Amino acid sequence: MARSASSATNSHGSEDGNQNSRGESSSQAQEQVPSVPDTGKKLKANCAKCYDCHELIPHRLLYICHDEICYGYYQEKNLTYHTPFHFYENEKVFCSRCSFVGNHQNHQDMMKEAHPVATKLSSKNKDLEYSFRKLAYLDPEDLVDRMIIDHFKVKQLPLLPLANYLLNAEDSEEWEGRKKMLDDFKETVEKCRTVGADFARKQAIKAMNFYNEAVYLVNETIETDNAREKSKEREQRKRRDSHKSSKS
């Protein structure tokens, strides 16, 4: 019982909560946070380092601690991460061994899976949602949008449930794949609008040039024809006048 009490005290720190299970102060524990390399260079696609043992662990097997007096306490913040990778890079996460057998075993009921939190904070991206709301808006003054409105008889494109689509990803790699699909889709639609509008403008200029050229050619031809007819009339009058003079 004494050993158990001692272990519990160490896991939560001293009575004033200033030490962790290894006898380190919270400031010392923070100083020992391993430097995290750039995503995609040293971290594998679905792995991150356990804060305690520094082993590279799949994201789905990592946990966060909700024990407020633990050195590894995860405090919920009003933050938005661009990807789950950024969450794992910036937060203290622990493998299952350290969570349930190691330093956190005495409050293992406070250890929760990190993946749902990582995907939740990454999926609720206000900038992303705004960009897709803007994408769904059809501008009647835009050439391509005007064609969509007239041809498909719609006033606005349907909004995509982005948060749910990203949130339900099985792991970080799948999340990244879904996010890439959204980015590619957005880029394609924007490119279609830009290229379509540019093509329409070029075709409009080309059509106007041809039309103006045709108008000029037709008018010039008519003027030439009129001048020729007038010349013929003058010649005819001259011949008539000459004929009358010869008779007199």
Rank of each mutant, 00 (worst) to 15 (best):
220 E>R: 04
172 S>K: 01
11 S>Q: 11
141 E>F: 09
191 K>C: 08
66 H>A: 01
4 S>D: 13
115 H>W: 12
232 K>S: 03
121 L>N: 04
131 S>R: 02
37 P>V: 09
225 D>P: 05
198 D>V: 15
3 R>S: 14
56 L>Y: 05
115 H>D: 00
183 D>W: 00
20 N>A: 13
142 D>A: 14
171 D>W: 01
189 V>T: 05
192 C>D: 05
66 H>L: 15
208 M>P: 01
54 H>L: 10
79 L>G: 01
166 L>R: 04
22 R>H: 10
146 R>C: 14
246 S>R: 12
130 Y>R: 02
219 N>Y: 04
41 K>F: 12
15 E>C: 09
223 E>N: 13
231 S>P: 01
12 H>M: 11
155 K>W: 06
50 C>M: 10
106 N>K: 13
232 K>P: 07
64 I>Y: 03
237 R>A: 13
170 E>S: 08
31 E>M: 12
152 F>E: 07
97 R>N: 12
202 K>C: 00
28 Q>E: 14
23 G>Y: 00
140 P>W: 01
187 E>M: 11
30 Q>Y: 02
89 E>Y: 03
29 A>K: 00
172 S>P: 02
145 D>W: 02
3 R>T: 12
232 K>G: 03
20 N>G: 15
8 A>E: 12
126 K>N: 05
248 S>Y: 07
205 I>D: 14
18 N>H: 03
127 D>I: 10
5 A>G: 08
32 Q>C: 02
247 K>S: 14
69 I>T: 15
28 Q>N: 06
5 A>V: 14
198 D>S: 15
180 K>N: 06
19 Q>S: 10
123 S>I: 06
13 G>D: 08
60 R>F: 01
182 L>W: 06
167 L>F: 15
49 K>A: 05
10 N>Y: 05
11 S>T: 07
184 D>S: 04
86 H>I: 07
11 S>G: 13
211 Y>S: 12
81 Y>A: 04
85 F>Y: 06
72 G>D: 14
91 E>I: 14
198 D>W: 03
73 Y>C: 06
173 E>L: 10
45 A>S: 12
192 C>S: 12
29 A>V: 12
21 S>V: 04
